[in-house]
């Protein structure tokens, strides 16, 4: 067996399960549309236009690309928290797989690859829809799903690592207490210059900000060298959380 392919065995398992339960996947794919319509369009009527990078945008134009990144985060957080916790601590699924020739890192990568396949498909669907709605202005927008994938990987890593510390289901309240502000405050719904001067570096230090800023740049065609900074931040987060998560899994499962 080629070691590279081993994580795919876990993906197969999920494909088989969800082939029988496609509605779950479908409902997740609809989530960004609900946000776009519920907040983008509904709020748009009372918010009016937003000026961004010297360009006047309608509120949906402003929110839509950022929602691709935010949804990628939300999807990854969901998949790698509840589902991951269930397989790790309740159902013994990971324990059972460790009795096969697969290693811990294969399990981790397999779950990650699956989460990204799901998330990637959602982003592509959403981006195509945004293009049809006329909310994207630049050909750079074809790279948006890739950025969404990276945001998803980064947050999937963070979520799985955090989940290894969860003791019971109620702990997830605290978990989402941390992640919800990220969603609300990371410039998805309003621009960075709304914040007072002193507050901006704090917002810029949060991971979702980098995804949001980059997707918006791609949608409007205002990409510049800052893109490397955003990509570097997200890639580093993917790498660091992977090391941390696999180490914690070993503590829990191979003690």
């Amino acid at each position: 067996m080629i070691a590279f392919l081993l994580p795919w065995r876990l993906v197969e398992r999920n494909v088989i399960f969800y082939k029988r339960n496609p509605v779950v996947l479908l409902s997740a794919a609809l989530e960004p549309f609900i946000f776009l319509f519920g907040l983008g369009v509904g709020l748009g009527k009372i918010v009016g236009d937003v000026t961004w990078a010297g360009e006047v945008l309608t509120y949906p134009e402003f929110v839509a690309p950022a929602l691709v990144a935010s949804s990628a985060m939300n999807g990854a957080l969901f998949e790698m928290s509840y589902n991951f916790y269930f397989k790790l601590k309740e159902s013994g699924t990971f324990e059972a797989i460790l009795f096969t020739p697969l290693r811990l890192s294969h399990i981790y990568d397999g779950e990650l690859v699956w989460a990204m396949l799901r998330g990637g498909i959602y982003s592509i669907v959403f981006v195509v829809a945004l293009w049809v709605f006329g909310l994207l202005a630049s050909p750079w927008a074809v790279f948006i799903p890739l950025v969404a994938l990276l945001v998803g990987l980064a947050f999937a890593g963070l979520a799985s690592w955090a989940t290894t510390y969860v003791r019971h289901w109620q702990d997830f309240d605290l978990f989402f207490l941390v992640t919800q502000p990220l969603f609300l405050l990371s410039t998805t719904f309003f621009a960075l210059d709304v914040y007072p001067e002193w507050c901006r570096p704090i917002v810029q230090a949060t991971p979702l900000y980098h995804g949001v800023d980059l997707t918006r740049d791609l949608a409007r065609g205002t990409v510049d060298v800052s893109a490397f900074g955003h990509l570097g931040y997200l890639l580093a987060m993917v790498a660091i959380t992977r090391v941390l998560a696999v180490r914690r899994l070993a503590v829990l499962l191979q003690n």
Partner: peptide, 18 residues
């Protein structure tokens, strides 16, 4: 530690895949 989300036969087949 069987996989409750799968059927009986799928449990064996997918384990074989591992």
């Amino acid at each position: 530690n069987l996989d409750d989300e799968l059927s009986v036969v799928e449990n064996i087949i997918l384990y074989g895949r591992y």
